[in-house]
């Protein structure tokens, strides 16, 4: 599609959407959000680019192959699930740790975050794979 408005809008919106996706991903544990909707919004930003330009340029913008994204995401999710098993707890139990950031407060890090990152990557990869394949055919 060759529309100047869409071109400009996608250039402006793409980083904003991605930023929003990352925000949703990390805030997802305690407030609405999480890996799934973050992945969808991330995919939406690339989909917008695809509609404004074309599939090859969107692929170039994404850099990684969607298949690799899905594979990595699955490994992330499974890795987070297996960590607890190696620690002697039930499969997929959430493990939490954390550290103090001087002056800024306490940061807790846990396996659910890794799991959500995996979900994010899988959803991003799958959605983009569907969109790319359908618009290429």
């Amino acid at each position: 599609m060759n529309s100047l408005i869409l071109h400009t809008a996608s250039r402006l919106l793409h980083p904003l959407l991605l930023l929003y996706a990352v925000y949703l991903l990390f805030s997802g544990h305690n407030v609405p959000g999480g890996g799934f909707c973050a992945g969808l919004i991330g995919a939406a930003s690339f989909a917008l680019h695809t509609f404004a330009h074309d599939v090859p340029s969107a692929r170039k913008l994404l850099r990684a192959d969607p298949h690799t994204l899905i594979g990595t995401g699955l490994l992330f999710a499974m890795g987070s699930a297996l960590l607890s098993a190696f620690r002697g707890q039930a499969f997929m139990t959430g493990l939490w740790g954390g550290f103090d950031l001087s002056g800024l407060g306490h940061v807790s890090v846990g396996t659910p975050v890794i799991f959500d990152t995996g979900v994010f990557l899988v959803v991003l990869g799958v959605t983009l794979l569907i969109i790319f394949t359908l618009s290429e055919s």
Binding site: F36, V126, I130, T133, L134, S137
Partner: peptide
């Protein structure tokens, strides 16, 4: 809903093909 999203996307692609 997530499952039906995936399935519907696949079914659409299948119909197209």
């Amino acid at each position: 809903i997530v499952i039906s999203f995936g399935v519907t996307a696949f079914a659409l692609a299948l119909v197209n093909r």
